[in-house]
Design a protein around this nucleic acid. Sequence first.
DNA 1: CGAGAGACTGGACACGGTGTTGATTAATTT
DNA 2: AAATTAATCAACACCGTGTCCAGTCTCTCG
Lengths: 203, 203
Amino acid sequence: MEQRGRRPARISGDDRHDAILSTAERLLDGRSLDDIPIEELASGAGISRSNFYFYFASKDDVLLALLDRVITEVQHRVAALPRDLGHEPQAAWRRSIGVFVDVFSAHRAVSVAAIGARGRSPEIEALWSRSMQTWVDFSREAIAAEQARGAAPSGISAGDLAVSLNLMNERVLVAALAGETLAVTPDAVLDVLAGIWLRAIYA
Amino acid sequence: MEQRGRRPARISGDDRHDAILSTAERLLDGRSLDDIPIEELASGAGISRSNFYFYFASKDDVLLALLDRVITEVQHRVAALPRDLGHEPQAAWRRSIGVFVDVFSAHRAVSVAAIGARGRSPEIEALWSRSMQTWVDFSREAIAAEQARGAAPSGISAGDLAVSLNLMNERVLVAALAGETLAVTPDAVLDVLAGIWLRAIYA
DNA sequence: CGAGAGACTGGACACGGTGTTGATTAATTT
DNA sequence: AAATTAATCAACACCGTGTCCAGTCTCTCG
């Protein structure tokens, strides 16, 4: 997602780009993106407000880049997971869910901000739902396989289960990370989610 | 509601108030609140933009009023539910969930907009989480009772289960109502949610 | 070394939306 | 008919975004 037309040696351009990103991630800790004027992102990165637009088209564009990093990390770790559940399905499910909990927890501010920005930014919405789609597909196939081999009952379709459980994960995790009043405590999240998944899938 | 006739000096005021509300609900069908300028709410209600502020402090204030109506309706119907599950617990759970699905589906646009506005409006956030709290309390106690009488296993705490399942309902329902690409079809929502609740609670 | 190319700045500006003020009109009470 | 109060609107001040551009700094290469 980079268009590099900048042959010349000066590297500082990329530095600035990254400086904006890290400034954003830092400021995002404690404030919502709406409350952060572009001026502040720029000055935090040591450049002027006008020059900000040389690197990003908007604040949401910055958040998009930030989210992209996080999602890439998740995808890598998900891809490294075995496609079938092995002989210890319960532990395998737990490990899968653990990937999300781990990565999103490690980027708390970005995750929370990105979910909040879904409503106003089509790009963020698109990136997010594209990723969700792959995770849902992954889950659906695994559930279907368990149902096919008779290990799981088929009262609820694998597709509906996969969608609902993934949406639950999203919401429960964000609530915990955002410190909402109604949330599971962060260190219990994995246990609770994994527990519900197993019960919902194997009944 | 009373005070019909010629007595009250301020008939038109209340009319305007309501006109704004219904204009908002109408416009909300298809557009997000951000995309609706106050000017349009005002003109839809037959008044000038400035005069809008005589009735509401902001757009979010309108949405708050709208949401309040919906939540009041839910609370009434929830309150009418028997506090214990009777001799047909499964049907009782399904009925409870059905209340939410029914009411929020009947006010699709408002529900979706309100959830989206939680991020920026503390009042909406407060109203919503206050309501969520009562539903979570309701569920938690019912689950705890089932666990106490040995009908449900206690591997996951009643509190965590109640929070997670309610958050799942919120997310899955909104996804369906908003027509997100990743969603359960609206008429399957109740079956799927009830199915997962029962499995998660009774394992 | 000095010229040319980016990178970068600061300031001006148009725009769109929000929220406020104060004067004004209309309805009602006394 | 005077006083009161509700309702209304036009005009204004404000804020953040995004655009533009003329000018400056600094690196690199011929």
